[in-house]
Design a protein around this nucleic acid. Structure first.
Length: 485
RNA sequence: GCGAAAGUAGCUCAGCUGGUAGAGCAUCACGUUGCCAACGUGAGGGUCGUCGGUUCGAAUCCGAUCUUUCGCUCCA
């Protein structure tokens, strides 16, 4: 096991620990791996399931005004036209061959002098002042083959070098995965893998509202995979092209969105803290006007301080009535809500909580990872909250004789029957077994020893303090349940 | 995609100016021990990322390709 040499290496250590212990493997590894896709192993899948279950418990089960659903990944292509993804969910990018820097064309244009902008508008025959930059970008995209030389001739400078760049032609990076429905590749069968789960909720708004008999304000929650053709992936499982989202769309009156936005920010921060994540590494950051997505008028990010910097775990956004409005006009279906008290029909506004499962997973691993000195030896321990630990308790015979393994196995059987994830280990020394479980984040260890055979008691060892207490075998399950709640 | 770095056992790595692969840890078995990474003996595990070239001979030199990491752009 590697040790921490400096903080910048934590992600590497987590990657190899994940592989060694069976949390996360690289996808398709025996074929050389597939970029930025990862598979969850035996411990990883348990941790991930526990995270999702905690979310569902917190967001759905414990509330009477939030219901769940599970939409298909494939949806009608018009969904993504209406949502704005077909139009907006791509980036026109360009490289400066001299400085080797890459820019988004619209960002680059925003950093040019008025005169340069005038030059390029003239070249492209654009007269309008309205949304000038957007029009220039569209025009350049249409003149893709010449876009590089047009920009060069207009004197577009590289903001880093302050000199005119040797620009490549514009390239469009479409962030949605395209696929075909049916075996024939014609354009009529194009479908997209959903880039967010939210749209599955919006298009089912009417179905869910009427069948669940919910009244405003209420929410619809969903956990599922989403796909984005990210240009750059990385930081282990932090940014991948296939990822899993936990989203909740909260429908309310338009006037109330700010109130609910504040409410959900607080709730969602509480949730991350309830998983034992260190408070001083979590923060809520408000988006500036320039960062807002096309659908959103206000947005907060919950961020965690990784060793690669503060990074977003969850977005909490005021989406207004944008999505339902869009789907109403595109589908010609009424997606309004009838308020019987005031006798009015209106389109509900939405406050969204959108979290990444894989990011929560990485946060929990990074936050729980600890190396400490015990009597001069280094101990690696994942201080996972008992609620989400993949294995809750490990059971060991102190010796592999005198009936101790048999008694231990019987204890494991009983714990398993009670629904608590447990593990039996008789290999190596007792100390080594404790340490192995420390690396897996198992919060409790039970050891069957000589005294067990006399008085029916075992030792219960705490992962973090390494302290032991003697408890009676009959009380194991009650005590565990109490400690795990 | 561009720039930089890297790829040798499950993990972390060594392997010099080319001569057909090693260590520590991990895994498994047997023995010994018995409460915090013990010891002994033994075993399994590598077409040195892949393909091609140079050479009598390539982990080593050259080329291509794939993958990973970091940076740029984007996001849950």
């Amino acid at each position: 096991m590697a040790t921490i040499k400096d903080n910048a290496k934590i992600l590497e250590i987590l990657t190899s620990l994940s592989k060694q212990r069976g949390f996360v493997f690289q996808s398709s590894e025996i074929y050389g791996g597939l970029g930025s896709t990862w598979d969850y192993g035996p411990l990883g899948v348990e941790l991930k399931r526990n995270i999702k279950n905690e979310w569902w418990q917190f967001m759905v089960t414990s509330r009477n005004n939030i219901v769940g659903m599970d939409a298909a990944i494939l949806m009608h292509p018009n969904v993504w036209k209406a949502s704005g993804h077909v139009e907006n969910f791509h980036d026109p990018l360009i490289d400066n061959k001299i400085s080797k820097k890459r820019y988004r064309v619209d960002h680059l244009l925003e950093n040019q002098s008025d005169e340069t902008i005038k030059n390029i508008s003239k070249k492209l025959d654009i007269n309008s002042n309205d949304e000038l930059i957007t029009k220039i970008v569209l025009n350049l995209i249409n003149n893709q083959e010449d876009s590089g030389s047009i920009m060069k001739e207009s004197g577009i400078i590289d903001p880093q070098t302050k000199e005119i760049g040797d620009w490549t032609n514009i390239r469009q990076f479409n962030l949605m995965f395209k696929t075909n429905i049916g075996p024939v590749d014609d354009s009529s069968s194009i479908a997209y893998l959903r880039p967010e789960t939210a749209q599955g909720i919006f298009v089912n708004f009417q179905n869910v509202q009427s069948t669940s008999r919910q009244k405003l304000p209420f929410g619809i929650a969903q956990i599922g995979k989403a796909f984005r053709n990210e240009i750059t992936t990385g930081n282990f499982i932090f940014r991948t092209r296939e990822f899993e989202q936990m989203e909740m769309e909260f429908f309310c009156k338009l006037d109330d969105t700010n109130k609910w936005l504040q409410y959900w920010c607080e709730q969602r921060m509480n949730w991350f803290e309830s998983l034992g994540i260190k408070k001083d590494k979590l923060r809520l950051r408000v988006h500036g006007p320039d960062e807002l997505a096309h659908y959103s008028s206000a947005c907060y990010d919950i961020e965690y301080k990784f060793d690669f910097g503060w990074s977003e775990l969850e977005g909490i956004a005021d989406r207004g009535t944008f999505d339902l409005d869009q789907h109403m006009s595109a589908s010609n279906k009424k997606l309004t809500y009838f308020d019987q008290i005031n006798n009015e029909h209106f389109v509900p506004a939405v406050v969204e909580s959108s979290a990444g499962v894989d990011r929560a997973f990485l946060t929990i691993l990074a936050d729980a990872f600890t190396q400490e000195d015990v009597n001069g030896e280094s101990r690696t321990v994942l201080k996972l909250s008992p609620k989400i630990a993949p294995i809750k308790v490990a059971v060991f015979p102190l010796m592999n004789k005198n009936n101790m393994p048999e008694v231990s196995q019987k204890i494991v059987d009983e714990i398993q029957n009670s629904g608590i994830a447990s593990f039996f280990d008789s290999g190596g020394s007792i100390g080594k077994r404790y340490r192995r479980q420390d690396e897996a984040g198992t919060p409790f260890g039970i050891t069957v020893d000589h005294d067990t055979l006399e008085d029916n008691t075992v030792t219960l060892r705490d992962r973090d303090t390494m302290k032991q207490e003697r408890i009676s075998i009959d009380k194991i399950i009650d005590i565990l349940k109490q400690k795990l709640s």
